[in-house]
Amino acid sequence: MNPFLVIEGVDGTGKSTVCAALEAEQSAAFYKGMSPEWRDFRDFVDEDADDDSRLLYYFASCVYTSGKVQKSLELGPVICHRYFATYMAIYSLNTGTPLSVVKEAFLPIRKRMLTPQLSILLTADHEELRSRLLARVHELKATDMRVVNSLEYTLNFEAALREVMSWDGSFIELNTTGKTPEQVIAEARRLCETHIPDWKPVTPASN
């Protein structure tokens, strides 16, 4: 299989920056865990749907993304900006449903989805996350504001991500606190070169 990488993390940890850099280096296909077509319905689902309907919506979105990834992997590498961990974590946090209950419902769905060769969880301390998010104040979404306004929410979100990502086995955590974008990209690149077979090393001439 061609390389399949997933980058997860709380808002503001640097996912978009890392994904964009690695996508360009690898000439990879890029997907967000929830495709634009599915995101169009998300506000309605989150505001008006009952909990079961909301969970099925998240499940369906994840399976759809996995199918798109599978087709793209026939042609080359794929990098995914979130996959399923974020959506299972958010559902648990927003509905108060224990992750153990979410996991029991999700496992039959998960069997229908591809498993990435490497999943990286980006983290950063709360003050740095706040600073990064407030720097793009005109782009902030509701989930961003929860991170900005609540240390407790941020810690709970990170803890939920760790638990959900562990359902697939191992993942690697990369703390981005105090690091430049270039440093974070270099560390993520090194992890990919170490842990993903057929990941194309970047030579100085291609930087």
Rank of each mutant, 00 (worst) to 15 (best):
Q70T: 02
T154S: 11
K141E: 13
E47F: 08
K68W: 10
I90E: 02
Q70R: 05
A60H: 04
N149Y: 14
P116C: 02
R112M: 14
I109F: 07
L140G: 08
H126P: 09
L140H: 07
A135I: 08
K141C: 11
D125F: 08
S100K: 13
I90G: 00
G67L: 03
R132S: 13
E47D: 14
T154P: 06
C62D: 13
A49T: 07
C80L: 02
L114P: 03
Y91P: 02
E152H: 10
T143V: 15
E74D: 10
H138V: 12
I90Y: 01
R112N: 10
L129I: 11
Y153E: 04
L73E: 01
T115N: 10
V69A: 02
V148L: 07
T95K: 13
Y83V: 06
S119M: 10
T123P: 03
C80V: 04
D51N: 10
M145C: 13
G67Q: 09
R136L: 05
V148D: 09
T143F: 15
H81N: 10
R82S: 06
S61T: 13
E139A: 14
T95L: 09
R82C: 04
A85Y: 01
V148P: 10
P77F: 02
L129K: 09
S53E: 09
R112F: 08
S92V: 04
A135C: 11
E74M: 07
Q117E: 11
E139N: 11
N149L: 14
I79G: 06
A124L: 02
A142M: 14
V147M: 11
L73Y: 01
A124K: 01
E104K: 14
C80N: 03
R82Q: 05
G67F: 02
D50Q: 10
E104R: 13
Q70I: 00
H138F: 06
Q117C: 08
Y83C: 05
T86D: 07
S92Q: 03
T115Y: 05
E47I: 09
T154D: 06
L55Q: 11
E128M: 09
T123Y: 03
L140V: 12
L134S: 14
C80K: 01
N94Q: 15
L140P: 08
Y87R: 03
K103L: 06
K141M: 11
T95E: 08
M88D: 00
F106E: 01
A135Q: 12
V148I: 13
K68M: 12
T143M: 15
V147P: 14
A60T: 06
K141P: 04
K68Y: 11
D50K: 08
M145Q: 15
M145Y: 15
A49P: 07
C80P: 03
P77K: 02
E127G: 14
E47T: 14
A135P: 07
I90L: 04
V101Q: 13
F106H: 01
Q70L: 03
D125W: 08
P108L: 11
S92D: 02
F84M: 01
H81W: 01
L56I: 12
R112Y: 06
D51S: 11
L73V: 03
L107A: 10
Y153D: 05
T123D: 01
T154E: 05
R132K: 13
L140A: 09
V101Y: 11
F59R: 08
C62A: 15
L121G: 06
S66E: 00
D51L: 08
D52P: 06
F84S: 02
P116E: 00
R130H: 12
T97H: 07
